[in-house]
Amino acid sequence: AAGRQDDRIQDWYLIKVVPSIDTFDREAFVKELCDEVLHRLDAASIPSRTCPVILHREAMTSLLGAFAGLFSGDLISKGISPLKGKLHEKIFSDKITIIDDPRNTDALTIANFDDEGYPTRRKLVVNHGVFETILHNQQSAARMQTESTGNGFKGGYASPVSVSPMNLYIEPGDQSLAQLEERMQDGLVITDLEGLHAGIDFVSTNFSLQARGYLVQGGKRTQSVTLITAAGSFMELMNDVTAVGSDIDWSYRQLVSPSILFGKMAISGE
């Protein structure tokens, strides 16, 4: 959908996977999409600040996906991942639990075996902040003298097998996005992160990414925001968690996160 106001044009898309088209609420879907486009028409930059931030589930899913290789046995064994040598150590806030489960029926795609024929299983990758499981395919497991975790998958028919998460997610909490906003009171909700291919340093986990979203004042959504940059360290950010939301949405993905409220983040604006 696209909207226009004077010389400003904003567009947005929305995808929903529904079990039955007969029960699909088309009007609610169109309203949600159009409301978001209308909000974005009034978007403007804001002065630079450091403030509490909610990474909306879409933005948080993008950021988690960019750093999912942290848990890869291939990258850990090569010393590329900063989690080398940190198995069974606390790496994140105790509010963060991360699970990899190729057999999770909440997801659209499931696999009982990986592309190397190893059985898959549910794994606690991070348990209340503690790094518990390294993800392996056959090659990385042999290199680290252990067994495959059933995470040897191909990116495509002609691609080589690599270590890949499947149906990896941050375990949701019990607060809706609106409740996270009420808890934050005054801060910023980031709905979109751009430039993930170039704006992150995987080894240090530093990132500097173009972003947009909206301000929250008194616990309520106010001005839409664009033309800002969000910067920080993924490792530091994941240790500054105030609350984890309940709004996880699998749709068509194999890696997801709910919205998360963080203590603070550096925002560069006008």
Rank of each mutant, 00 (worst) to 15 (best):
Q5P: 01
D11C: 09
D11N: 06
W12A: 01
L14K: 02
I15C: 08
V18L: 02
D22W: 14
F24Q: 05
D25G: 00
F29R: 02
V30D: 02
E36Q: 07
E36A: 05
H39K: 10
A43T: 03
A44W: 15
I46A: 03
S48E: 00
R49K: 08
C51M: 08
P52T: 05
I54P: 04
R57L: 06
E58S: 09
E58K: 13
T61E: 09
L63V: 07
L70M: 04
S72E: 11
P82L: 13
L83K: 00
L83W: 06
K84T: 14
H88W: 05
K90Y: 08
I99C: 01
D101T: 09
R103S: 02
I110R: 01
A111Y: 08
F113Q: 01
E116Q: 07
G117T: 04
P119V: 10
R121M: 12
V125W: 02
V126C: 03
H136E: 02
A142N: 13
T146W: 13
S148D: 06
T149M: 13
F153E: 01
A158M: 08
A158Y: 11
V163H: 03
S164T: 02
S164E: 03
M166N: 04
P172I: 12
D174E: 06
Q175E: 04
S176P: 01
L180P: 05
E182S: 06
R183K: 15
D186G: 07
G195H: 12
G195M: 10
R212I: 12
R212N: 14
Y214G: 03
Y214H: 12
V216I: 14
T222G: 07
Q223V: 10
Q223L: 11
V225F: 15
N239I: 14
D240F: 12
V241C: 05
D249W: 14
Y252F: 15
R253V: 06
I267P: 00
